[in-house]
Design a protein around this nucleic acid. Structure first.
Length: 563
DNA sequence: TGCGGCTATTG
DNA sequence: CACAATAGCCGCAG
């Protein structure tokens, strides 16, 4: 089959119709619409996908990240897609999964008896009668694991079969959405999370622009400051101490007359003014961190052709936040001046303001709390209502979302419950579900699985403390998870809206975006990024009255101050 | 060599 | 010092 013949067959179909896809470099493309399947042998499958996408603009259905990875390598950006494994994580909860596991779960097959690769290879070599190696399904209904790990890529006919199964999996998932409380909302999430997975493929491909000379300068400075002697010279009598061993550091401080329960920075910070030894230790630790974690080895491992790259996942972690390796999400502030493009480009830096409380207002629909979001600083009206300072109001609101029970926030918590009963009630309901070990669901329909630690049975105190931790976790997961969903809608909207200007997202950081843009389009990109906050809010927010805000600025380096 | 504990960094 | 994450070094068990 040729691409032209295929396009003729697809003629007249509606935009957005689901079309499943499997492909392999240099081999071909397999497609399926559920009723028919097509196999195209060709060298450049991405070019075929580009033609169909331009012609029909379907919703591309694929099994997993391997497909957008290939498309991203060919610089083909797809906006409308359905990633079966990403949707599986949404429906099922958790992160660990695989194509055979998702297939088994969707088809009600026992998942304990999932065929494993090694033993199956032997069985297949024996090739029982009645078994067809060209069939991706075994007689018991399970997927052949060797198909999932590349076997489907051998011929375009196999790809067509593989695409056909992806289509079936997608239909099974659609049926499950129908059983949800808010099917339409969960479907929206499935689509946006799938697009976010494609964005992750691009983030891995592109990387962050990094000025290596500047990075080396920062590392060299840290190397100087991490000399043990800078700390040890404060000791009388002089002594050898392994500063990397917390127990030895604690003993060292005790000998210096400082008896502390541990040596954590927040504790030491309080006394560094009056204790030169402590001040030197904290300075040493900061330098040590940069030199060990973000030193020359790190540069060599993660930087190539002027880009800093890590692995990206679109919905890792408890509640579905994006994660990145290579330290991209916890780069020390001191290193951020090295994140900079060449002079012909700029970074548009944007971050959502007070995103978690605003999301709480949106998902709870609490009238009074929604009203507070009209303010640029949401904590001001809250403080006024509670008759406390702005700082206490902030700690109280954050404490309510994290499940704090002690400290300053405890007192203000009663004020929050009186003034914002709907929002606080929602949080408490989630916490109670978590304590009981019941799964909770984000507003976008992500299942957040709870767990029961079997090791606590018999130990009442421990069981209570584990249940309490689960309650805090569930309470926060509703907010953090919903914020992650909103953030991803914003990110994929930006991705789509700035593309024609040659701009690309190069970093996603929970509430912050970095967009790399040609200098001449920086102003327009910045405007679009700001507009996209409203567009994303309109699309995502369960309560249209909630106001979302963002800071947007054009910078040469990530570290540059916002204007 | 793998793992828990401690510590750092970030949102 | 509550929620989430990645990542390093240490000592200790195997």
């Amino acid at each position: 089959m040729t691409p032209d013949a295929l396009l003729a067959e697809l003629d007249g179909r509606e935009t957005g119709v689901p079309l499943a896809l499997a492909l392999a470099e240099g081999i071909g493309v397999g497609l399926s619409d559920g009723a028919q399947q097509w196999a195209l042998a060709c060298d450049d499958p991405a070019a075929v996908v580009a033609r169909i996408d331009g012609y029909l603009s379907p919703r591309w259905v694929w099994w997993d990240r391997s497909t957008p990875d290939l498309l991203a390598r060919h610089n083909l950006a797809i906006d409308r897609c359905w990633d079966v494994l990403t949707v599986h994580r949404l429906l099922h909860g958790g992160w660990k999964t695989s194509i055979p596991l998702a297939w088994a779960w969707l088809n009600g097959l026992p998942t304990e008896s999932l065929p494993r690769m090694g033993q199956l290879g032997l069985l297949d070599a024996a090739s029982e009668e009645g078994e067809d190696a060209e069939d991706p399904l075994r007689p018991d209904g399970h997927l052949r694991p060797e198909w999932a790990t590349g076997g489907y890529q051998e011929t375009s006919d196999r790809m067509a079969g593989w695409a056909s199964l992806a289509f079936s999996a997608h239909e099974a998932q659609l049926a499950l959405f129908g059983e949800r409380d808010s099917p339409d909302r969960a479907l929206m999430t499935a689509r946006s999370e799938s697009a976010a997975e494609m964005l992750c493929a691009e983030l891995e491909q592109d990387g962050l622009p990094i000025n290596e000379a500047e990075a080396h300068r920062i590392i060299a400075l840290a190397e100087e400051e991490r000399e043990d002697e800078h700390v040890l010279r404060h000791l009388r009598p002089s002594q050898e101490v392994n500063l990397r061993n917390p127990a030895e550091v604690k003993a060292m401080l005790r000998r210096a007359g400082l008896d502390l329960p541990d040596t954590r920075a927040w504790r030491l910070e309080k006394i560094r003014e009056s204790e030169p030894l402590v001040d030197a230790l904290l300075t040493w630790r900061k330098a040590e961190r940069i030199a060990t974690t973000y030193g020359t080895i790190w540069l060599a491992e993660h930087v190539a052709d002027g880009r800093l790259r890590g692995d990206w996942t679109s919905s890792d972690g408890a509640a579905g936040r994006m994660t990145a390796s290579a330290g991209l999400h916890n780069l020390p502030a001191a290193m951020r001046s090295a994140i900079a493009p060449d002079d012909s480009q700029r970074l548009v830096r944007a971050d959502l303001g007070q995103i978690e409380p605003r999301v709480l207002a949106a998902v709870s629909g609490d009238d009074a709390f929604v009203a507070a979001t009209q303010d640029d600083d949401l904590y001001e009206p809250v403080a006024k209502k509670l008759n406390v300072t702005r700082d206490i109001a902030k700690v109280a609101v954050l404490g309510a979302m994290y499940g704090a029970t002690t400290g300053e926030s405890a007192g203000a918590l009663r004020g929050l419950q009186n003034n914002y009963p709907v929002a606080m009630g929602l949080l408490e309901e989630a916490a109670e579900a978590g304590r009981l070990g019941h799964d909770v669901f984000t507003t976008g329909g992500r299942r957040v699985p709870m767990w029961v630690d079997p090791s606590v049975s018999g130990d009442i105190d421990k069981a209570i403390s584990v249940a309490a931790a689960r309650g805090r976790f569930a309470r926060n997961a509703l907010i953090q998870g919903a914020a992650a969903e909103f953030f991803k809608v914003w990110a994929i909207t930006v991705r789509r809206r700035v593309r024609h200007l040659g701009a690309r997202i190069v970093l996603c950081l929970h509430d912050e975006l970095l967009v790399l843009t040609p200098m001449e389009h920086a102003d327009e990109v910045a405007s679009l990024v700001a507009e996209c906050v409203q567009e994303a809010a309109h699309y995502w927010s369960p309560d249209p009255r909630v106001r979302f805000v963002a800071d947007v600025s054009i910078v040469k380096r990530w570290s540059d101050a916002k204007d």
